[in-house]
Amino acid sequence: MAVESFFSQAFTGLSIGSILLLIALGLAIIYGSMGVINLAHGEFLMLGAYATWFMQSQLGVGLLGSLVFVFVMVAAFGWLLERTIVQFLYHRPLDTILATWGIGIMLQQGMRLLAGGELRYVELPGSLDVTLSLMGLELPLYRIFIIVLTVGLLAATWYLMKRTEFGMRLRAVTQNRAIAESYGINSKRVYSLTFAYGAGLAGVAGALVAPIKSVSPDMGTAFVVDAFMVVVMGGVGSLLGAVVSAGVLGELTAGVAYLLNDTLAKVLVFLTVIVVIRFRPQGLFPDRTRS
């Protein structure tokens, strides 16, 4: 019994961690490569959730069918924002906090006007709305699906960053923009595409969390704070760091929530983040590049 509940909590932690990672992935890329603290990330997620809701309730397209569309739509939106606003703030990183928060406020209110302020619900895909019983454990299939998809997105992102021409350009621009430009890399284009990719990931995250959390215009605020803790604790620009810190925070949340309660779990998680940043401001797994 004790062993079973241990594994059950471990699975819950894994599930929380995968959602955290899913949300933080786009943020980690944008913050890690451009130093932009994108507080509108939560609103990108909210846009993704609403797009999924709209597809399902108005057009009858299921969650799985709308994932690609959601990615493209939110990515295009992110690209537009980068071109019009964010690109002017690269030399003022703290100001990006303020500008993106302003954008976030507008998106929230815009969505409230468009879709109304009430909570919206997205249905689980029928094929995934089952619970697996495995060695005495009850595992909701949708949670497993999120874990698998997160791993998939992580692998795709890793491949994009480390194995493609685009990723090489991005890493070059991140290391030294001026020298990268003198080799003929169009840094503006690299930045705007990266921002779009990060936004698209947030949109997919929004689509995936929509069935398990309720969809509302201000749903993003809580997510963006959590995602930030993951990214900063993991270390700027480190995918591995984001994975480990999402895992640690997820398991910690589940474990403490099991022993005490949900709120105290979150409190302890945030205090852990504070202590980690205090003693390792470079994060758990800092990116070893010269800046």
Binding site: I37, P93, L94, I97, V225, F228, M229, V232, N261, T263, L264, K266, V267, F270, L271, V273, I274, I277, R278, F279, P281
Partner: peptide, 25 residues
């Protein structure tokens, strides 16, 4: 520990969330 810039922002933000959670709890 000579924490500065963004890290101060994140720590103070985390502290705020802790305070808010405790008051609600």
């Amino acid at each position: 520990a000579r924490i500065a810039g963004v890290f101060v922002a994140i720590i103070t933000l985390a502290m705020l969330v802790v305070g808010n959670l405790l008051v609600v709890d």
